[in-house]
Amino acid sequence: MTKRILIIDDEPDIREATQLCLEIARGWEVLTAGSSAEGLQKAAIEQPDAVLLDVMMPDMDGLATFERLQANPATHNIPVILLTAKAQASDRRQFCQFAIAAVITKPYDPLTLADQIAAILEA
């Protein structure tokens, strides 16, 4: 089943590679946003099935963006998967405090990333 995935990440190389991974692996429709603001806007408009959200972003970090998505009824129900390079235990404890669907740690396996997301969304 085709899904629409929104990638919000300030790293353009990562956005580009991840988008390619998901498109090639599952043929999903992948939307990207280079900043939180852009991502919030696209999420509300495009109503993706899931949002892959980077945490470390300069203008607004991923957790703040998540809260904004949660706060917006239009994006409230969109599952958010953190796709982050922050892999410390303390980071994980922090992420647990949010109603996040899943956390996928960078660098992810490009060949299984789509499967992981699919499994998360199906769970």
Binding site: A17, T18, C21, K106, P107
Partner: peptide, 8 residues
Amino acid sequence: TPLTSIRS
């Protein structure tokens, strides 16, 4: 971050 790009 660069590793993610490289690995992907």
